[in-house]
């Protein structure tokens, strides 16, 4: 269960952030998730709602997700194309020498929080 694994890491990171910044309550968390990161968003939010109850500062935190589209770059014709539509093979020149430039990320973009005084 990949989503649960990631959720535990998000919660751990936020606990640390809360301590460093004297945060008393986190109202929302915005994650940026790549289109081909393999994370299923609905499932992810369910995991979050279940898991956040174990962390006092996160109890009311709403999970917001921004999807980052996947883009692949072709080394042969130096063009970019939509990964999900064409996969590994460049639609312009049929080359296999291509690599993903975005779409695999899973980062914590920002939080909304209340701090001491």
């Amino acid at each position: 269960m990949h989503e649960l694994g990631i959720v535990t890491h998000v919660a751990k990171t936020l606990d640390e952030v809360a301590e460093e910044n004297r945060i008393t309550k986190i109202g929302s968390v915005t994650l940026q998730i790549g289109e081909v990161s393999g994370i299923i968003n609905d499932y992810f939010v369910d995991c979050w709602d279940y898991f956040k109850k174990k962390h006092p500062v996160l109890q009311e935190a709403v999970m917001k997700i921004e999807i980052i589209p996947a883009v692949t770059y072709c080394e042969d014709c130096r063009s970019e194309y939509e990964t999900v539509k064409y996969g590994k093979i460049c639609p312009h020149c049929k080359s296999e020498r291509t690599y993903l430039i975005q779409g695999n990320e899973c980062t914590i973009k920002e939080i909304e929080a209340e701090t001491e005084e």
């Binding site: 890491h9 640390e16 109202g27 980062t107 973009k109 209340e114």
Partner: peptide, 15 residues
Amino acid sequence: MKVIELHKSVTDSND
């Protein structure tokens, strides 16, 4: 509430 920008990888604490 104020917005705090983090831009941290979720694997940051694990790393």
